[in-house]
């Protein structure tokens, strides 16, 4: 979602926010989101159940497939970002690349939300194994980092490296989440619906 708007936006007349505040405030909000999820997951008594989607053999499979599709969209994110930033040799950014980037990101996020809600409500923040602890931490951090990314996106005058770095962080966290959940789930219980 880093495509420059097609119509140049006029700078707001006098937004006195300094460059640092533009980063600090979103970062604090993101940290708050991550903390809220972690604390809720730790305090809420896991129920072992949440709303389910029909057509799958178990909530584990629903979540694994949703997470897998979200991760595929995340790969589209990295690919489209590289094209937008002109990092892919001999590939000129097509006009629709911005829309592709925005919508793949939105879909990945919207797919990740139900998975996270099931995790938080039914399973909670757990630490009984390294995989589970890593997954719990990455899950909270992912939504925090995504919040930061969304909040700094419309801000102007930020260092050019900032968005790619935050975007890469969000992507890395999602991949860690996928490996510690869906990959483990499929390799343990088999790949099917």
């Amino acid at each position: 979602m880093t495509a420059p708007p097609t119509i140049p936006m006029p700078l707001p007349p006098q937004r006195a926010a300094s460059g640092a505040a533009k980063i600090v405030v979103p970062s604090l909000i993101g940290a708050l989101v991550a903390l809220t999820l972690g604390i809720y997951g730790r305090l809420h008594h896991p129920t072992g159940i949440a709303v389910n989607i029909a057509g799958f053999s178990s909530p584990g499979y629903v979540k694994s497939w949703l997470a897998t599709v979200a991760t595929v969209f995340a790969l589209v994110q990295v690919g489209s970002a590289l094209v937008m930033y002109g990092k892919v040799p001999h590939v000129a950014a097509p006009s629709w690349i911005g829309a592709l980037h925005r919508w793949s990101g939105r879909l990945a996020f919207f797919l990740a939300v139900p998975v996270a809600i099931h995790c938080l409500y039914a399973l909670g923040f757990q630490n009984y194994s390294t995989r589970v602890l890593l997954h719990s931490l990455a899950g909270c951090a992912f939504f925090g980092a995504f919040t930061v990314k969304m909040l700094i996106l419309p801000k102007r005058g930020l260092p050019g490296w900032l968005l790619p770095v935050v975007g890469a962080l969000v992507f890395t966290l999602l991949v860690v989440l996928w490996f510690t959940s869906a990959y483990w789930f499929f390799s343990t219980f088999g790949i099917h619906r």
């Binding site: 919207f110 139900p114 995504f146 969304m150 909040l151």
Partner: peptide, 18 residues
Amino acid sequence: RNTPLITLLTGAVLGIVL
């Protein structure tokens, strides 16, 4: 300029509904 915020809020609403 507000579309990222809308994305974020939509996700939050989706989460709360679920």
